[in-house]
C-alpha cells in the first residue's frame, strides 16, 4: 500500500494536505531566502504541487524517485520530513545532508529519494540505474525520474530512456512541462509539439496529462507503474504545469507577462482539488481551514527546528568524502583539531 492514494477519502485528504504543505514550505523557503537566512539559491515548486503529489500517490513507499533542482515538492510528496528539509536549506547539521547539500541536493536514499540535482538531466540515468537494480534483484519496485521540459534536451536523458526501454526496465520518466527552462519558453528549446511525442523514438508509451489536475497525474502514473511491474518497460508522462514564481528567487521574470501567470493561477491545482472534495462532501470549508492551519503549524515548527539547530563545525567539512578516510583530507581535520582557526586552504 502506498502511503496515500487517491482511491480513498483519507488518501485524498492526505494528498491535499501534502499539496498545501509543499506550498507552505516553499512560501516560507522563499521568505527566509529573501531575508538572507537561507544561503545559495532556491527554486520553488509553487504551482506544480499536483504533479509531485499525484505522482507519489501512485507510487509505493519503497519505489525510487530522482528529482531536480526544483525538488522540495518531490521530497514532501515522497514523505520526507519537513523539519530535516528546512534544516538542510538553512545549512544546519541536523539537515538531511548534514548541511553539505542545501536546497539543490536534498536526498534520503533509504526513503527512495535519490536526490534533488543541480545538474539538469542528470536524474534519468540514475533512475535507469535504480530500475536496473530492481530488475537485477527481481524486486517489486519501480524507479521514477522527474525531469523538466528543459532537461528533455539533454543528451544523457536520451541515453537513459533508450537504455531503459531497450532493457525493458521498470522505469517511469515524468516530464514536468512548466513551459520554461529558466527564461526560455519550451517552443524555443524543442521542435516537437508535445514532449511526450519523443517517446516514439523509444517505442514506449508517451502521454500528456493536465498537471494541474492531481487525479489525472495519479492515473497516468498508476498505469505506468502497472506496466513497469508487468515487465512491459518504461513510460514517458508529460505533465503540463506552471511555476508561479520565478525560475529562482530573485528572477525578475521579464520573459513572461503577468496575464499568463494569472491565467494559470485561475486553474490552481490546490483550489480545484479542494473544490472537488467539497463537492463530493469529503471536505468542508471549516475542515479546509483547519487543515491549512495544521500545515502552517508544521512548517512553522520546521522553521523553528531549522533556526534552533546548530551550524556544522568547520571540521565537519572534512567528513563524508570516503568510507575509508584519506590522509590528503584528514590532515586538514587534524590540524583544525590541534591549531584551531580556518586553514584558508593552506596545505601545511
Amino acid at each position: 500500500m502506498a502511503n496515500y492514494t487517491l482511491d480513498t477519502e483519507d488518501g485524498r485528504l492526505e494528498a491535499l494536505r501534502r499539496m498545501l504543505t509543499i506550498r507552505e514550505f516553499d512560501t516560507k523557503a522563499g521568505e527566509y531566502f529573501a531575508d538572507g537566512e537561507i544561503p545559495g539559491f532556491v527554486h520553488l515548486y509553487i504551482g506544480e504541487e499536483a504533479v509531485g503529489v499525484g505522482t507519489c500517490a501512485a507510487l509505493e513507499p519503497d519505489d525510487y524517485i530522482t528529482s531536480t533542482h526544483r525538488g522540495h515538492g518531490h521530497c514532501i510528496a515522497k514523505g520526507l520530513d519537513t523539519k530535516l528539509m528546512m534544516a538542510e536549506l538553512f545549512g544546519k547539521r541536523s539537515g538531511y545532508c548534514n548541511g553539505k547539500g542545501g536546497s539543490m541536493h536534498i536526498a534520503d536514499v533509504d526513503a527512495g529519494m535519490l536526490g534533488a540535482n543541480g545538474i539538469v538531466g542528470a536524474g534519468p540515468p540514475l533512475a535507469t540505474g535504480a530500475a536496473l537494480s530492481i530488475d537485477y534483484q527481481d524486486r517489486d519496485q519501480v524507479a521514477l525520474a522527474f525531469l523538466g521540459d528543459g532537461a528533455v534536451a539533454q543528451g544523457q536523458v536520451h541515453e537513459a530512456v533508450n537504455m531503459a526501454s531497450t532493457w525493458n526496465l521498470p522505469a517511469v520518466f515524468l516530464v514536468e512541462n512548466n513551459k520554461y527552462g529558466e527564461a526560455t519558453p519550451v517552443e524555443k528549446q524543442h521542435n516537437v509539439k508535445q514532449l511526450s511525442d519523443t517517446a516514439q523514438a523509444y517505442d514506449i508509451p508517451g502521454v500528456t496529462v493536465d498537471g494541474m489536475d492531481v487525479t489525472a497525474v495519479t492515473e497516468a502514473v498508476e498505469e505506468a507503474r502497472k506496466r513497469a511491474r508487468a515487465g512491459d518497460g518504461p513510460t514517458m508522462i508529460e505533465a503540463e504545469t506552471y511555476r508561479y514564481n520565478g525560475h529562482y528567487e530573485g528572477d525578475e521574470q521579464n520573459y513572461r507577462d503577468e496575464e499568463e501567470v494569472a491565467q494559470w493561477k485561475e486553474r490552481d491545482a490546490i483550489e480545484s482539488f479542494k473544490e472537488r472534495l467539497i463537492d463530493r462532501g469529503e471536505l468542508t470549508e471549516a475542515e479546509f481551514e483547519e487543515l491549512q492551519a495544521e500545515v502552517e503549524d508544521e512548517i512553522a515548527d520546521a522553521v523553528e527546528y531549522a533556526q534552533n539547530s546548530d551550524l556544522p563545525e568547520p571540521e565537519e567539512a572534512y567528513e563524508d568524502m570516503f568510507s575509508e578516510p584519506v590522509p590528503e583530507v584528514e590532515q586538514f581535520a587534524s590540524r583544525l583539531r590541534t591549531d584551531g582557526g580556518s586553514s584558508g586552504g593552506d596545505s601545511r
Binding site: 544561503p39 547539500g101 551550524l311 568547520p314 565537519e316 567539512a317 583530507v329 580556518s342 584558508g344 596545505s347
Partner: peptide, 28 residues
C-alpha cells in the same frame, strides 16, 4: 594554498573552511 580535496560544501561555515583565502596565503 588551494581547496583541500573536498567538494564545495553548502553550509557557510563549511564552505568558508575549505575555501582558500588571504588568511591561508598569509599563514603560508
Amino acid at each position: 594554498v588551494g581547496t583541500p580535496d573536498t567538494h564545495m560544501p553548502f553550509s557557510t561555515p563549511l564552505e568558508q573552511e575549505v575555501l582558500p583565502d588571504g588568511e591561508g596565503v598569509e599563514n603560508a
